[in-house]
């Protein structure tokens, strides 16, 4: 579902992402962790078509992001780390806008939007301007918008930032539901406990390089730390030399 080969990004002389390769099948929740400035957001931006790679390719459901960005983007639902939205639209209007951009069937739209807003506890605030929303509400609205067109791949950068405990629980269950439905969830996070809890596999990126990938037990082997939790493995692998 997601195929990344030798993905590289240079900003001038800085090598932000260094030949990263990954294959993520349908129905998998993949956790992407790493210290600040490791290259997580840059990788996500290249995957979502927000940034051109200096080298390498990204395929979403077999579609090349560089060659066919429009078709590839149609299959993605993106939740960025910072909820920048059109503040002068209402929540419902923003969803309608996203529905238009992704050409969601108009017959289904209204019911679908109401269901999503209900699921994310936003229905009673749907006709208010987004500028009046809290950070967490904006984050929930972006999640609604990312799912409105039934994407095959969901790419999420820091999903839990700004969410209250109820929201975190709901998102955790939603990701499991989506994966169960055959969608791929690619999630970057600093919440190691969450990654350990819900991810099928985890990738650790450090200084632009993907230094470890696998299930928790595979990561234990790679770090030579059997019986350890993800936090200990993470510190061991990303320890400054």
């Amino acid at each position: 579902m997601i195929s990344i080969n030798n993905l590289t990004k240079k900003f001038g002389k800085t090598l932000a992402v260094d030949h990263v390769s990954l294959q993520i099948p349908p129905g998998e929740i993949f956790g992407f962790i790493g210290p600040n400035g490791a290259g997580k957001t840059t990788t996500i931006r290249m995957m979502a078509g927000l940034l051109y790679p200096s080298e390498g390719t990204v395929h979403i459901c077999g579609i090349d992001m560089i060659q066919n960005p429009v078709q590839a983007k149609q299959r993605i639902g993106l939740v960025p780390d910072r909820p920048y939205l059109y503040e002068k639209l209402t929540g419902m209007e923003f969803l309608r806008f996203m529905g238009d951009m992704y050409q969601v069937n108009s017959a289904d739209f209204t019911q679908k939007a109401r269901d999503m807003l209900t699921q994310f506890s936003l229905l009673d605030r749907a006709n208010e301007l987004i500028e009046a929303y809290s950070h967490g509400m904006k984050q929930r609205l972006i999640m609604c918008a990312a799912l409105i067109h039934d994407p095959d791949v969901i790419i999420v950068d820091e999903p839990m930032v700004g969410l209250d405990p109820r929201g975190i629980k709901m998102v955790r269950e939603l990701f499991r539901l989506l994966a169960g439905d055959g969608r791929t969830v690619f999630m970057s996070t600093h919440t190691l406990k969450l990654a350990q809890e819900i991810c099928d596999r985890i990738g650790i990126i450090h200084q632009g390089k993907l230094i470890a990938t696998g299930t928790l037990s595979e990561l234990e082997d790679q770090a030579s730390m059997s019986g350890s939790d993800l936090e200990s493995i993470f510190f061991q692998l990303t320890e400054p030399v």
């Binding site: 059109y86 002068k88 209007e93 238009d100 951009m101 050409q103 108009s106």
Partner: peptide, 17 residues
């Protein structure tokens, strides 16, 4: 209303904003 397209989306967004 029957035709959801980027033109419609962007047009409405631009005018409302």
């Amino acid at each position: 209303a029957k035709h959801h397209s980027p033109f419609r989306g962007l047009f409405i967004k631009e005018v409302l904003c």
